[in-house]
Structures are given as structure tokens and as C-alpha cells.
């Protein structure tokens, strides 16, 4: 097992190199550089810009530029933002990533708390009223785009009813302790629900079909024939098997924890990684774009690794060696 994990992490290295090449190539393929598209001071001699380009290494051959960039990244230096002058990319990301992580985890928590019990209930009472309602809700949840649901939520729950704030992460920075936690959670409710909507629908449907599948299996009949109580049959024999595909799904979702929030954050003006990403794109802030893209790639790789590890823990049939 440990050998497997170490081997998987080693495989990360070539994957990361590939990823960085692609990110670099995409950034380079885009037209323009930090000096184009700006209103340039007419009094500055164009030769100065050329000189600057030369100094920043923008005229070097691409492979040389790549190696320079990659070797800096390898030491954790993502360079300076071109838009926010004087700010390092790391500090920009660091400032935002916490908000996005909180939001992602909050959305995931809502998703699991809602989806798993309803999925189990639906499977145990198929074709009941609640099952039909859950199915309908599930398809709606999958069909409604995030941004649209977000706008509706803002209109009704924030503007009309005033139950939740429409944007931001916190009302006042003066508060601390539990008041602050509560305020932050209050701000996360709408974006959290919006972000978790599609996931809730997916997990719910998965859970329903998995539990339904397992309940019909031979080993559940065996467990019942052994005189096991209904609780034991459901919580021990059924859930342990039904949860296996859910875990795989969660591994993939782990990557989406950071990337999934891009649109939702924009709708709620939530100062997270997603807003930073979109702003950087409009500002052609390539160092930031590249860093975030790399970061998302890494989270997806880690998510997949975690999924594989958890998978082998819950399912003894899976052994990596």
C-alpha cells in the first residue's frame, strides 16, 4: 500500500511536467504580453520597451523561457502579478484560497448531509412521494445552471426576503470569535447551496441506485437469513457496499472543490480563487492564470490519488501492489 502511494506520487512528477508545459504553451499561445494592450506613455521610446522585454527574458527562445519559469516554480516562486503591481502571485492566491476552500467544504457538507439520507430513503421506499419529489428535484438541480440558480437565490432570498447577504464573506471585520464564524457561515449559505446544487442531485441519484442495487443482492438476503436486524442490514451490510462508488465520486469532486466555484463566486462577488481567476483572465495577468491553472491540475491529481486510497480502504477486493 505505502509502496503504491509512493509510486503514485512519483508518477505525479512527469504528469506535473506535462501539465506545466501545457499551461505554459497555452499562455504563450495567447496573443500579447504585459506591454501590449496598455496605453503606453508616448514619451517613452519604444526601444525601452524592447529593452524591458529583453531584460524580462520575453525575447528568449520558448524552451529557455519555459525552463526559467519552471525552475522558479519548482522553488515555489510563481513570480509577480502583472496587474497588481508588486504583489507576488503566491500572496494573491494565499489570500483567496482560504475563502474558496471554506466555501467548497461548506458546499460539500451541505451536499452530503442532504443527498445521502435522501438517497437512502428513496432506495428503501422507491416510488414513494418523497422518492418522486427527490427525483424531480434531482433533475431540476442538474438542469438549472449554477449562475441562474444563484441569481434566483439572490433575488428572492437576499433581496426580497433579506434572509441572507447577497455577496461577500463577512459584514464587518470588527467581530471575532463565534460571532465571526456565524457571520461567515451566514455569508456562505447562498453560494454554498448554489455550488452544491448539482452535486447534491448527483450524489442523491448515485446513492439511491447503489442502495437499491445492494439491497437486492444475495449477500443482503444472507444477512437477513442470519437473523440480522434491519438496522444492522442497512447500516453495516448495505451502506458499506453502497458507499464505495460515492467515495470514487468524491475523489473527483475534490478537484472541483477549487475549480467548481469559479462561476458561483463571480455571481456572489465572493472573494475567492474563482473571482481572482476570472479577473486575471480579463486583465491578462498571465503569471496568476498559470499559477491557478497549475494549482487546479494538482488538486485534481491529488483528488484522484485520495479516491484510489480510500477506495482500497473500503473495498478489500481492491489491492494495489
Amino acid at each position: 500500500m505505502y509502496k503504491y502511494i509512493i509510486r503514485r506520487i512519483l508518477v505525479f512528477i512527469p504528469m506535473l511536467i506535462m501539465l506545466s508545459i501545457i499551461v505554459f504553451a497555452l499562455a504563450k499561445a495567447a496573443p500579447g504580453d504585459p506591454f501590449t494592450g496598455k496605453i503606453l506613455d508616448p514619451e517613452v521610446d519604444p526601444a525601452v520597451f524592447e529593452q524591458q522585454r529583453e531584460a524580462l527574458g520575453l525575447n528568449d527562445p520558448l524552451p529557455v523561457q519555459y525552463v526559467n519559469w519552471a525552475s522558479k516554480i519548482a522553488t515555489g516562486n510563481f513570480g509577480e502579478s502583472m496587474y497588481y503591481k508588486g504583489r507576488s502571485v503566491q500572496s494573491l492566491i494565499k489570500e483567496r484560497i482560504v475563502n474558496t476552500l471554506y466555501l467548497g467544504l461548506f458546499a460539500l457538507a451541505i451536499t452530503l448531509i442532504v443527498a445521502i439520507p435522501i438517497g437512502i430513503y428513496s432506495a428503501r421506499n422507491p416510488y414513494s412521494i418523497l422518492d418522486y419529489s427527490a427525483t424531480t428535484f434531482g433533475f431540476l438541480g442538474l438542469a438549472i445552471p449554477n449562475f441562474f440558480f444563484g441569481l434566483i437565490a439572490i433575488y428572492f432570498l437576499a433581496i426580497k426576503l433579506g434572509w441572507f447577504p447577497a455577496q461577500g464573506t463577512i459584514t464587518s471585520t470588527d467581530v471575532s470569535g463565534w460571532t465571526e464564524v456565524w457571520d461567515r457561515v451566514h455569508h456562505m449559505v447562498l453560494p454554498g447551496i448554489t455550488l452544491g446544487l448539482a452535486g447534491t442531485a448527483t450524489y442523491m441519484r448515485y446513492m439511491r441506485s447503489e442502495v437499491l442495487d445492494v439491497l437486492g443482492s444475495d449477500y443482503i438476503r444472507t444477512a437477513k437469513a442470519k437473523g440480522m436486524s434491519e438496522r444492522n442490514v442497512l447500516y453495516k451490510h448495505t451502506l458499506r457496499n453502497a458507499i464505495i462508488p460515492i467515495i470514487t465520486l468524491m475523489g473527483f469532486e475534490f478537484g472541483a472543490l477549487l475549480s467548481g466555484a469559479i462561476i458561483t463566486e463571480q455571481v456572489f462577488s465572493y472573494p475567492g480563487l474563482g473571482t481572482l481567476f476570472i479577473n486575471s483572465i480579463t486583465n491578462r495577468d498571465y503569471p496568476v492564470i498559470m499559477a491557478i491553472t497549475l494549482l487546479l491540475g494538482v488538486t485534481i491529481l491529488i483528488g484522484n490519488l485520495l479516491a484510489d486510497i480510500f477506495y482500497s480502504i473500503v473495498d478489500p477486493r481492491i489491492r494495489y501492489d
Binding site: D218, R240, V314
Partner: peptide
Amino acid sequence: RGNDIAMIFQEPMTALNPV
């Protein structure tokens, strides 16, 4: 069940819980 009456099934491959 399992105490006074016990039952064995046809498919041993699927009758035991895999996990």
C-alpha cells in the same frame, strides 16, 4: 432466522458480503 432455521443459498459466489 439463523437460530432455529438456517438457510444456504445457490450462489456461494455472491452470498457472502464482499467487504
